[in-house]
Amino acid sequence: MARKLNMRIWRGDSVDGALQDVQVEANEGEVVLDVIHRVQATQMGDLAVRWNCKAGKCGSCSMEINGKPRLACMTQVASYGEEETITVTPLRAFPVIKDLVTDVSFNYKKAMEIPAYAPPSDLKPGEARMQQVDVERSQEFRKCIECFLCQDTCHVIRDHEENKKSFAGPRFFIRIAELDMHPLDTLRNRKQTAQEEHGLGMCNITKCCTEVCPEHIRITDNAIIPMKERVVDVKYDPVRWLGSKIRKREGIV
């Protein structure tokens, strides 16, 4: 059942690096992370790779396998052909540190820029009442395991380093959507800031984020597009805009 597997593993650091060929044994049912570990234990003791749970729950083992952003612990070796060489590289949208490990601090910086959940100031612990149907949309986004595969694949920053300043990325669009749809969040300008500060308008809804999300969060359909529509409500729709002005004057909002 065990077979020889041909792999190409990118090794190097921020200065230089290259793909290296290795042959390694692979057993039935193994995932790519298993064989990487075998390479590490038997041939390259200092091969750098991040992982934690090996169960698709923590989002640490993000890398690119045959050019596609994936979790190594959820990618079956058997999903590739017997003769196929499996090529693994670090994420290509972020600075590389060593081998398969990249510097993902960009994402933590962006997380800092999203205003936190803002419950009503008079809400007391234990008194929150929310209906299941009202929390379900946000719950979908909270499934996110922060693997940052969506961030990695998004061409806005993958292909344009300079956009990193002004673009929060799909992971944080779902965070904004989560809060904007949260039944008790009171912050009203999330839509405006999504567009003006976090770069929602840069997204051209080409859906690569959704394609790679291991949690199958429908990032584009359920978060980005609804947020774009909400932005239109407050910024580009004269009818709604007028309506909101009038209602505000009457104190209905």
Binding site: Y117, L123, A128, M130, Q131, Q139
Partner: peptide
């Protein structure tokens, strides 16, 4: 309850 105040969304 405290977690809920910080934004946790438990099933209802």
């Amino acid at each position: 309850y405290e977690l809920e105040m910080w934004g946790a969304l438990f099933d209802r």
